[in-house]
């Protein structure tokens, strides 16, 4: 057993993938708690599709000769999209859902066209859709560490504000909290998390990292702090397990992580139901 882990961690590319992935999973889970509870889960989906569209734009521009790291094209655009989505949803809750779907679908479609017309649906494009563990470079490690530090600080120092704004934004605003700023912050950090995590998990799957851990934790926990902590623990654990399984059984890494999350969700749902029925007996 120990030998296996020694071998597993002897490969640089695996260590990098595990570090970046775990940190992304951690951030996604924490941010996800707030997003899911505000019924804003779809922002993850919307932003990841915008991410895909912007990355193909970056690749396309590269193919035309402009030497740009696709990330540098994608990150600012996705952040802008995050602010836009937030703005839209603030103005009307019903429109919010449809607006996300609009932006989501359009970005994906535009991305596919750009890809088809420039480089074709090649390896790079497929990797961005479905993820690739080899895509992590040294810079990604630093970037993900920086991101996690910021998210963790946010969650520790502003935990109570985040709770108040998530539970009851109207009350928070009425008593003087600048809810708008916190919402922007969460949206911004979500955008960064998605752009970093998308390269490993894939644009189509990264939003699951945001949604699943929070939902799972809510099956069994009754108060906010346990939900937050459990969500973070579950996310990182499921990620690591998924990576391990993908290594052992040669399954795609991103999808394996999501499947593990799914299994854990079902387990916890069952647990939650048993607990409830146990309490009434």
């Amino acid at each position: 057993m120990l030998d296996f882990f020694q071998e597993f961690f002897s490969y640089t590319f695996i260590v990098r993938a595990v570090i970046v992935g775990s940190l992304v999973a951690l951030c996604a889970a924490l941010l996800g708690v707030s997003l899911v509870l505000k019924r804003f889960s779809m922002i993850g989906d919307g932003l990841s599709h915008v991410g895909f569209g912007t990355i193909t734009l970056g690749i396309g521009l590269n193919a035309l000769g402009l030497n740009l790291a696709p990330l540098s094209v994608s990150l600012p655009l996705v952040i802008i999209a995050a602010f836009l989505l937030l703005r839209i949803s603030e103005n009307s809750k019903i429109k919010g859902d449809a607006a996300i779907a609009l932006i989501s679908g359009s970005s994906l479609a535009i991305g596919v066209i750009i890809a088809a017309k420039t480089t074709g649906m090649n390896t790079d494009v497929c990797n961005y859709m479905f993820g690739s563990i080899l895509a992590m470079k040294k810079d990604d490690v630093y970037l993900s560490i920086a991101l996690s530090v910021v998210v963790l600080i946010l969650f520790i120092l502003f935990y109570h504000k985040i709770f108040a704004v998530t539970f009851d934004e109207a009350f928070a605003r009425a008593t003087g909290t600048k809810a708008g700023i916190y919402n922007m912050l969460v949206a911004l950090l979500t955008a960064v998390t998605i752009v970093i995590g998308m390269r490993m998990m894939g644009a189509l799957l990264i939003s699951s990292l945001i949604i699943f851990p929070a939902l799972t934790a809510m099956r069994v926990c009754k108060s906010f702090r346990p939900v937050t902590i459990l969500s973070a623990i579950l996310s990182v654990t499921c990620f690591f397990t998924g990576m391990l399984l993908s290594f052992l059984y040669s399954t795609p890494a991103g999808a394996s992580v999501v499947v593990v999350n799914l299994i854990v969700f079902c387990l916890f749902s069952l647990l939650g139901k048993i607990r409830k029925s146990g309490a009434t007996i």
Partner: peptide, 28 residues
């Protein structure tokens, strides 16, 4: 100013302990 807003759908199903909710009134 203490405010008791109309409850939203979100809140009815929110995982928070009573103490956490009441304590959030002390936020400011």
């Amino acid at each position: 100013i203490g405010y008791l807003p109309q409850q939203t759908v979100v809140q009815k199903d929110f995982p928070a302990s009573v103490f956490e909710v009441v304590l959030s009134g002390c936020l400011n």
